[in-house]
Amino acid sequence: MLDKNGIAKRIAKEFKNGMYVNLGIGIPTLAANYIPEGVDVVLQSENGLLGMGPFPFEGEEDADLINAGKQTITTLPGSSIFDSAMSFGMIRAGKVDLTVLGAMEVSENGDIANWKIPGKMVKGMGGAMDLVASAKNIIVAMQQVNKAGQSKLLKTCSLPLTGVHCVKRVVTELGFYQIENGAFRLLERAPGISIDEIKKATEGKLIIEGEIPEMEI
């Protein structure tokens, strides 16, 4: 079973040379630590920065330079800064090649819920609705099973939706899936995870064809 860093490592393998990538808060942000050797990507932070660099060293932090998670960060050679309308303009116009974000639920037709639990948690959608409505290439990083043992890869989302028919791929602690024709197609198993464990943890329609390889991370 993968931990958060394991999920982030698998996601980072999807980064290809020349991509502009938006990483959401949480596990997706960790993927920045595992960008493969020789792969050159530019990270977009939707509060208005292209070319997000690493966290600053102590004493170099700048209150005016943060990422979308409100963390202090740095710029890199070639960074650019812009306002929030342009930031979402480049997202809406499809200029950002890959979006990685977290989710509470994903359904077999690619719907995603990640912004609200009625009566309990109301934090807001931030930029997630804009991202999922426009990105061509969305990978969700999430836990497949909640603390109560229930699957979060569902037939239909039970929580208020963030977007519809938009998620293309999902990486969880158990596996790597592609969403196609209303089903989760299993592409890879997490190290040491059996097909049976994956079947038990998937409520939505699951397609398993042929030998399913174990992830290399």
Binding site: E46, S84, F88, R92, M125, G126, D130
Partner: peptide
């Protein structure tokens, strides 16, 4: 009223 961030900006 919670609205998407890009919608707010635009």
């Amino acid at each position: 009223e919670l609205i998407p961030q890009g919608t707010l900006a635009t």
